[in-house]
Simulated scan of single mutants.
Amino acid sequence: MKSVCNIAVELLKPGAAHSPAAAHSRLGAEMCKELKTKVLRLLPPTSNGPSVHQGDQTDGAEILSCTVKALKEGHVVAVPTDTIYGLACLAQNSEAIRKTYDIKGRNGQKPLAICVGETQDIYKYCKVPVKEPLLEDLLPGPVTLVFERSEVLNTDLNPFTSLVGVRIPDHAFMRRLCQMCGEPLALTSANISSHTSTVAVHEFQELWPKLAVVVDEGPIGDQSRLGSTVVNLSVRGKYSIIRPGCALSCTVDVLEHKYGLSEE
């Protein structure tokens, strides 16, 4: 396998040497050597051409393979999602969960969500009282659904609550990453706790030395920084909004008008 530091440079488009993305990639490659942090440049989908994970399967596969390897070894990685950049580790790995809290300086009583690749995966780790079509209407997308956790989920993940939030980002790389890991990822925002959410990797550069891999897809989406809409669906026939996030109105519309749920 090629050096991942070289991959970070090679995945840049020709002629982009003076762009901000190129500057960040060069910096990433330099930090690679110094910090042993692998900074990998993943080209986002474009309207006039294929994305790296569609049109350049070899390099895209290398980035996925490198990230999966780091996760399987118990490390924490930074990844793009459909809303903001996140920190991820294997949810079933208790030591990796502790690392994630340490990296963020996060209050131990604040929960981490889990991220899975397919709707069917939710049923393994959560007790789901809603109809499957409801899940399919909201996921994949910028929504975190909160359910009662199942006995299969690691008891060291959010041991202070019987609930867990679950995400399927509308993001091909993240979904494939979960599928390749074969188990849920614990997912939280890529920033120091209480700091602003990040939509570009340079915004959380102070965390890079503590991460095994940083997957850089450039600036994310509309850069709203609101994160996903978090909704509690653990009570049958009811819903409650935990965090408004970026998809509040459309989420409430689906819950109330299509499925007849009422707000607690």
Rank of each mutant, 00 (worst) to 15 (best):
G165D: 05
L187A: 05
G108N: 13
T81F: 09
A70H: 03
Q92F: 04
E183R: 15
N154W: 09
A247N: 07
D59A: 12
P140T: 03
T144H: 07
V201K: 01
P20T: 08
E148I: 15
V39A: 10
H75R: 10
S193C: 13
T196H: 12
A186N: 02
Y85I: 00
H53D: 13
F173H: 02
L71A: 10
R149G: 02
C178W: 10
V235Q: 12
T100G: 07
L139N: 06
T144W: 08
G117Y: 01
P159N: 02
L134E: 07
S19N: 06
K124W: 14
C250V: 07
I103T: 04
A23Y: 11
D156E: 14
E263V: 12
R98V: 08
L153T: 00
S150D: 04
L163M: 13
K13H: 14
V254E: 11
R176C: 11
V199P: 08
S193I: 12
F204V: 02
Y101I: 05
L255S: 09
D216H: 01
S193P: 10
V254I: 08
L134D: 05
A96L: 02
L233I: 02
V116E: 03
E203N: 05
I122M: 09
C32Q: 12
Q179G: 08
N48D: 08
K127S: 13
V231P: 09
A91R: 01
D156A: 13
E62I: 12
G55P: 11
A16M: 13
I63L: 10
S150N: 13
V213W: 00
P44K: 01
V128K: 02
T155D: 15
L112A: 00
A29V: 10
T119R: 06
V214T: 03
G245S: 08
K72W: 00
T46C: 11
L12W: 08
E132T: 14
P184E: 03
I241W: 11
S249P: 11
V252G: 06
C32G: 14
L135I: 12
A91D: 00
S19H: 14
Q223D: 06
S3K: 15
P140H: 02
F160Q: 03
T58S: 13
S51G: 11
T83L: 06
F173N: 00
P111Q: 08
A16W: 05
V52P: 10
M31A: 14
K36F: 07
V130K: 03
L261A: 01
L87I: 10
L153C: 05
Y259S: 02
G221K: 07
H202K: 10
I242C: 12
I103F: 06
C89Q: 04
G49Q: 01
K2Q: 14
R41K: 10
G165E: 00
M174V: 08
S19P: 05
A186T: 03
L43C: 09
S249V: 09
L134H: 14
E132V: 15
C32R: 10
P209L: 06
D137C: 07
Q179E: 14
P20L: 10
D121P: 09
G28A: 07
G218K: 04
D102C: 05
Q120S: 14
A200N: 06
V9I: 14
V166F: 03
L42Q: 01
G28T: 02
D137W: 06
A186K: 01
E73L: 13
V79F: 05
C181D: 06
P20Y: 07
L145G: 01
